[in-house]
Design a protein around this nucleic acid. Sequence first.
DNA 1: CCCTAGATTTACT
DNA 2: GTAAATCTAGGGC
Length: 186
Amino acid sequence: MTILPRTFYSRDTITVAKSILGKKLVRKIGNKEISGIIIETEAYRHKDDPASHAFRKITERNKVMFEEVGKSYVYFTYGMHYCFNVVARNSKFDAGAVLIRGIMPEKGIEIMEKNRGIKDIKKLTDGPAKITQAFGISKEHYGVDLTKDPKLFITDGIKHGKIIASPRIGIKDATDRLWNFKISIK
DNA sequence: CCCTAGATTTACT
DNA sequence: GTAAATCTAGGGC
């Protein structure tokens, strides 16, 4: 297995959102490992993207979107949930991130079931806030470098077929952009 | 299957 | 004050 290098993330946010499909997210907790294949993502960019947290200006919450690519952007929303993103952009933009929206569990399924409090594998990691729960990701992982951190990183994964593009979920602006990407796993 | 309400931090039309 | 890159439980069909 190979950890994705910084250069992987220094391309256009849309390109990275598509390229990261089929890759593997790995989380180590003590001597246990949780991992899964990324099967759905969304791209959020900068000045050209009214739906992005970074659209208006830099704030305490979104500042990592302006920092080095390959870091994690974890944000808290709806008063209850964390969502996990990877900072990615090319030199044309000052900010950008890819939201990890769907994962197919591989290892550590028992731990995920415990973290989520349910047994239904289909509902384990089929939403952004479900992933952070299952993987034990929260505020303490804000700004973590995913190319270097021993407990949270992304490696190369599997081959897959065609990518399905759709409007992004849960936003009201810029719904004409097909910046939600997913692959189907049999 | 579908729909609705409620959980309650953060940022600002 | 209120809307937000969400999820769950509970009720109806």
